[in-house]
């Protein structure tokens, strides 16, 4: 059941953004979408609205870009609790370290295996 929920919820986030891009004649660019979803995730997470969403949809809520915003927000909150104001800055990136490192590592190996010349 969680797979179905993840598929539907994750898909709906993408569909909503695609419709937004199409309906605005691509005035909303992929760049806007990237920043907008991450920011929306941060805000929703900060006010406590994203966590129930993650409980309901699992990866359907954590894999889209808004899930990255959620991780940043939660990391910042935990960072403040343990390390004060500085923790707000350290905590966010520390919580997202897995995703960031994976991007660097996979990017590195893809560049070794293929010819990135685009």
């Amino acid at each position: 059941m969680i797979f179905l929920k993840a598929f539907v919820v994750g898909g709906l986030i993408c569909v909503a953004v695609q419709i937004l891009m199409d309906r605005t004649n691509f005035k909303v660019t992929p760049g806007h979408v990237l920043v907008g979803l991450v920011t929306a995730g941060v805000v929703l997470s900060a006010v406590g609205a994203y966590e129930p969403f993650v409980k309901f949809a699992g990866a359907g809520a954590t894999v889209p870009l808004s899930g990255f915003g959620h991780i940043l927000a939660q990391g910042a909150i935990k960072g403040v609790q343990s390390g004060g104001l500085l923790g707000a800055f350290n905590g966010a990136v520390a919580a997202a370290a897995g995703g960031i490192t994976a991007a660097v590592v996979f990017g590195y190996f893809a560049a070794l295996l293929f010819k990135p010349k685009g």
Partner: peptide
């Protein structure tokens, strides 16, 4: 970059 696979507008 073409690798980024950015959507092309109509």
């Amino acid at each position: 970059p073409t690798e980024q696979g950015v959507q092309r507008t109509p």
